[in-house]
Design a protein around this nucleic acid. Structure first.
Lengths: 137, 137
DNA sequence: GTTTGCCTTGACGCTCACGTCAACGTTTAC
DNA sequence: GTAAACGTTGACGTGAGCGTCAAGGCAAAC
């Protein structure tokens, strides 16, 4: 199939697919006129990349999974490098969850505090906010 | 004080301070030779901006807080616009926490699954990973 | 033969918060 | 007089993952 069809079937764009190729994630056969030719295995690669991206993987993180599929495994996470990326990502997510939880608590406290002061003083003043540079005429 | 001293006292750089000014967040008096002159109120503004940035606010999000301080309030969150930003940010953080929790669960499941398959088959294959484009010689 | 719709490469644009020069003026110390 | 340590504006670079032209070639329908 050509690049347009692969893009449609994977719900992405031709630009993204060419970008994946430039990153070394995707390789395509070329037909006589120079058009990229893809098969079902390539489609599988793209869907794997997309699935991983939705869980916050960078394109670089997806390399071992792509390599694993290309090596003939039926799933992208059958190789040690992929599993290692899983572990690293899980650790990253946990760290992020921790920081975000702390941020949430602090934000919640600040809001409650501000509302308390507002009740005490009986008012909340409006302020004239400086415009962002793009909004200046 | 001059821009260098303000940068040192706030633990940031002169470049950042000039950037804040370009964004309309900071204003400076100019002395006869064109140098920027800051006072303690400006220092307060910068520390407020920094405090908000550490909880994930964009510079644009800090505008109401800066405006509030500039209007003479003793704290940046004494104005309705600031409180509104608090609410919005809290909602954003909550949404993010939700998604990140789901991602964590999915990631955890995938890892467990991959490890199970690994145990069943008794091996995990190494795969040759394609190099990133920057690593090519 | 011309329109339409595919494909090609190449290059610049976008976000965000600055970093990093470059080229130059000012102030103070020696 | 000159060197060091300040300051000024302006312009381009960074990272991630593409979007958006531009300028052109190829293929099938009319």
């Amino acid at each position: 199939m050509l690049i347009g069809e692969l893009a449609r079937r994977t719900g992405t764009t031709t630009r993204a697919l060419r970008f994946y190729e430039a990153q070394g994630l995707l390789r395509a056969q070329r037909s006589a006129n120079g058009y990229r030719e893809y098969d079902e295995d390539d489609l599988r690669l793209v869907t794997e990349i997309q699935a991983l991206q939705t869980v916050g993987f960078t394109l670089d993180d997806t390399r071992p999974f792509v390599a694993c599929l290309r090596a003939g495994h039926e799933s992208g996470d059958s190789c040690v490098d992929s599993i290692e990326v899983y572990r690293r990502k899980l650790a990253e997510v946990d760290a992020f969850l921790g920081r975000l939880g702390a941020v949430r608590a602090e934000l919640h406290g600040k809001l409650a505090e501000a509302l308390t002061r507002q009740d005490e003083s009986g008012h909340a003043d409006p302020c004239v906010v400086a415009p962002s540079p793009s909004e200046e005429h």
